[in-house]
Design a protein around this nucleic acid. Sequence first.
DNA 1: GCACGCATTAATGTATACGTTAACATAGTC
DNA 2: GACTATGTTAACGTATACATTAATGCGTGC
Lengths: 243, 243
Amino acid sequence: MNTSTEARNNETGKAASRSAKTGAARVSQTERAYDQIKRRILENDMAAGFQALEQELAEMLGMSRTPVREALIRLAEEGMVEVRPRHGMRVLPVSADDMREIYEILTSLESTAAELAAARGVTDAEMAELKMTVTDMDAALEEEDLRKWAAADEKFHMLLVKFSNNARLLALVNSFWEQTHRVRLVTLRLRPKPVNSNKDHAAVADAIAKGDREAARRLHHRHRVKSGKMLVALLKEHGLTQL
Amino acid sequence: MNTSTEARNNETGKAASRSAKTGAARVSQTERAYDQIKRRILENDMAAGFQALEQELAEMLGMSRTPVREALIRLAEEGMVEVRPRHGMRVLPVSADDMREIYEILTSLESTAAELAAARGVTDAEMAELKMTVTDMDAALEEEDLRKWAAADEKFHMLLVKFSNNARLLALVNSFWEQTHRVRLVTLRLRPKPVNSNKDHAAVADAIAKGDREAARRLHHRHRVKSGKMLVALLKEHGLTQL
DNA sequence: GCACGCATTAATGTATACGTTAACATAGTC
DNA sequence: GACTATGTTAACGTATACATTAATGCGTGC
């Protein structure tokens, strides 16, 4: 008589950390506000420098100011927006210097992740998953599909961090990647074909497969320093001081 | 920036925006709630596992639920507390495994900071400041003043990160240090005399003075791995599974 | 034309109201 | 006695109310 066990999966279905319980996923307004605003920022619907008052956001999202405020607190803490008392929130632009800072951190954390993954050892399934991203990157380059390449690139980095067996590390790296999302979108078309990145990834994967932690760390570190420098140079070169 | 030195009045201490004419410092309730709750957690007034409802905290702090909620969102984001819908907030205990994760991250970020500081080069004044902490640590050990030693130790690490010229890195390291604060307090008396730590610090300072980035990184990395392992071992040895 | 002070306005910070719903207790069923 | 259904309660999520105060514009004096 009770069919409530049948999941009505018409919800966002995103990376919602809702447990896979039965019943409709009850999403709080605060959560909705957070997801919505973040999505719009990441997809550049709200570009860098975009400003809006709490009330405006509330109307835009069909809710009151309270959940909007709560979402903004989180987004501000993560460095996505800034909240100035009488000016509402502002989507923080990312400068070349911001990118330097973020890449220094990502370089550090990701190469640590590579080392940890190599030290811990990854399962065959995990290694297969990792190598698949390299294959995808190669294929994407062949097809000249930069979007696809970027997706595979991101997947590789995320898997790497996941395999490090450190939840905090994963969350951190994820957060900083998000902050670079817009910038990478733009530079994707300005940079030279990322052939070397593919090679780098393959080499890192190999080192991890061999359990050579020092090599994994060193190779990934070098890879990250290279792409970081390239990106920052690209930004300066094109006068892209604020993204 | 908030060392455990003194439990002064709850002033923000940051902006010093207190103008001469208006005597009262303009601190928002949300900020007061944040500072207060955080201070109590760091000083173990609210021990790990401590629970309280929003309403209780509000009464405790003499304000309404709203600013308490906003403070809790930030504290939760920083990993200090957990907010469960019908159980109020809970001060998150730190397990040995949490310490492993946090130390892996700190090891990574701090050794990067050491490398960056060495690469950038520090001024004479900065180097003097750094060496002063080593002197203080030595003196503290002589006097068997472990509190003082811990303060100097923390100062060294914070200076290191400050000299890296990366604001995000500084904020991150600071945040994770705070999370280990309670644990370090307890282990301070259980661990062997930290003679080697002093030597390590001196060596790192030297490498930075010489501008030897690879040495700075490697030495600090080794230092951190050592103390991290020591700490985790200590926790397990003494059955301190939750702090 | 410019600097300054004051009135106006509106965005915010905070308190409070209120419906919803999870947690707990209690009673009822096998 | 264990388990399930039901009722009660109160903590929360969210909306709203309201006092405060920063930003803005305007008029005044020079």
